[in-house]
Design a protein around this nucleic acid. Structure first.
Lengths: 142, 142
DNA sequence: CTCATAGTTCACTTTTTTGGTACACTTTTA
DNA sequence: TAAAAGTGTACCAAAAAAGTGAACTATGAG
């Protein structure tokens, strides 16, 4: 019922990039800002790039920047880029399972977990990095 | 973002017990019905008992039965009995974290994840085993 | 044009969590 | 009182998560 640390880091990176739009930031810089191991940072950024959430700039003074506007990147996109599809139960991904000795096409929990997973995904897709930036301001003004 | 297999099993056990109220069912019986290893079943039942969700009957012809009505047992209770408190991010359990180099009392994601976790917990506490039994009937009538 | 910078890729290790066992108990009732 | 059934602790192994190393490639500034 938790997102992985990797997804957690990923959100942080996107957040940092969003805070400084139009600026290319190196992996070293990002690692320092988010307090994460540099190698690990690279790995995560690679996944984010692969999913088209960030873009990389090669060569001297290269680095990373967001591929689109903060308001166009949702938590769902980031989490799914790292952890894969949002599903509360393992029997989501598989075809309808036949556990519990039932010969029916789906186990009795399938539908409930499907619904919950979808709700969660929808909720997360409604929260963008732009929202997080706003929230951040609120926290800081406390 | 997934519940563990153990919690998944736990829900199944409670479900099976709920299907046959007023009947004491042995661990062996439950294992067969849910297709789970017997030893593991015992371990899970132990946790459920510890949290007061099921009761055990000792001695010959002993076994387990629900501690209360199916409508009084929510998915939240079962999942938390096994996996611990529902929290989407690791930084929930800890005290407000000071990552991201902020000297503020809480990181900018803390509040968002707190809200989401609470929402999820509330949603799960609204679904009882009685609901699952009903849902089951629907599936079976497809 | 060349070299330092920075990303890319693959392969690896360590740590933690999950899933599952073993076994030596205790309790109860037929 | 012996067999059936639950109790509890400790342990183990596989898998996933978390993190590392090193060789490689691309690029642009000087």
């Amino acid at each position: 019922m938790k997102i992985t640390k990797e997804a957690d880091y990923a959100i942080r990176f996107v957040y940092i990039l969003a805070k400084n739009p139009d600026t290319v930031q190196g992996a070293t810089q990002l690692s320092q800002a988010a307090v994460t191991p540099e190698r690990y940072t690279l790995k995560i950024l690679h996944k984010l790039k692969h999913k088209g959430l960030v873009k990389s700039v090669k060569g001297a003074h290269g680095g990373y920047r967001l591929a689109c506007e903060p308001s166009e990147i949702s938590l769902k996109q980031i989490i799914e880029a790292i952890d894969g599809e949002i599903a509360l139960s393992k029997c989501m991904g598989e075809e309808p399972c036949t556990r519990m000795g039932q010969d029916k096409q789906s186990c009795c929990f399938h539908r409930i977990f499907c619904t919950l997973s979808r709700e969660m995904a929808e909720r997360l897709s409604g929260i963008t990095i732009a929202d997080v930036l706003t929230e951040d301001e609120c926290v800081c003004e406390e």
